[in-house]
């Protein structure tokens, strides 16, 4: 009786919760170690709790703002881009969902992504190149694909995962700085040796956990969801070929060192923008955030 879309939504919400929980544990551990370093473990944990609470709020309530800033996207209104606005509005009608905010990235490389926490608070970002290179039906298909991600709550998990993963990098940078600073400034200090040890411990924790979290991020942004979003998009527009030819165009036009190439965000885009950087698209399927475009196109054409 369970609708596959509903179980998909439930799974995404559950995974988001697990992600938050794991990060809470990680921050607690780091806070504890920092606390020992300062001489008051409780204070360290309280500090960590506060930092985590702030992070939680940021990633949950304004994750899409962080992501659009990272991507260099700017919000546009109907008067500026009536064509894009009308297209998005049409698809939001097809999906029966509220109208997302629209962002544009000023680059000729065609691509698009969606972010947000639920259908009421979400955004769709497209590049200028996408609008210039696709015809109306292809653009509709891409927007439909993004609407499907919003619909399925894929955006919640992806957005939260990206913001949280970013903070891990941030923490590790701080920890390294502190160690360097502590090493130089207080090298001969009373607790220098012990302090160094704890800093190394923190670094170790971060160093071990960071790749695990990166892996989680990939798991979160699973490849299966792309097939599902493709299928849902085809269902919204009633025209699978539109998405197939859009994917073809987008995949062929990803270039090396494009402005939208960003490791943290690559799983978010409809087609991985780092494709151009890898030789002849023959990247390993195992480590990819996306299924190969050829396979997606093949499935769409078989519909």
């Amino acid at each position: 009786m369970m609708d596959p879309i509903y179980s998909r939504i439930a799974a995404n919400k559950r995974r988001t919760f697990i992600l938050f929980f794991l990060y809470a544990v990680l921050f607690g551990a780091i806070g504890y170690l920092v606390g020992i370093y300062i001489g008051d473990p409780l204070f360290g944990m309280i500090l960590a709790a506060i930092v985590f609470a702030v992070l939680f709020m940021i990633s949950y309530f304004s994750g899409q703002n962080v992501v659009t800033k990272m991507a260099g996207a700017r919000e546009v209104k109907k008067q500026e881009e009536p064509y894009l606005y009308n297209t998005v509005e049409a698809l939001s009608i097809a999906a029966g969902k509220p109208m997302p905010k629209i962002y544009i990235i000023e680059t000729e490389v065609p691509n698009a992504f969606a972010a947000g926490r639920n259908p009421d608070n979400s955004i769709i970002a497209v590049t200028r190149g996408l609008m210039n290179r696709l015809d109306r039906q292809e653009l509709e298909a891409v927007i439909a694909h993004e609407m499907a991600h919003i619909n399925n709550y894929d955006v919640l998990l992806a957005t939260v995962a990206i913001v949280l993963a970013g903070t891990i990098v941030f923490v590790s940078v701080i920890a390294r700085r502190m160690m360097l600073f502590g090493g130089m400034g207080r090298g001969g200090g009373r607790r220098g040796g012990q302090g160094q040890l704890i800093m190394i411990l923190i670094l170790l924790v971060v160093a071990i956990l960071a790749p695990i979290f990166a892996q989680l991020l990939k798991f979160a942004i699973s490849r299966q969801r792309e097939y599902l979003a493709d299928a849902t998009a085809a269902n919204f527009t009633g025209y699978p070929e539109g998405l197939a030819s859009a994917l073809e165009k987008i995949t062929n036009q990803q270039v090396k060192n494009s402005p939208i190439e960003n490791r943290a965000l690559e799983g978010l885009y409809i087609v991985n923008p780092s494709l151009g950087a890898r030789s002849a698209n023959r990247q390993s399927v195992l480590f990819s955030t996306h299924p190969p475009a050829e396979e997606r196109i093949k499935r769409l054409r078989a519909m």
């Binding site: 009308n86 297209t87 509005e89 049409a90 009608i93 097809a94 109306r136 919204f236």
Partner: peptide, 11 residues
């Protein structure tokens, strides 16, 4: 734009 939206709303 409206014609297109009507088509989707109908669907």
């Amino acid at each position: 734009g409206i014609e297109n939206k009507i088509a989707y709303a109908r669907q």
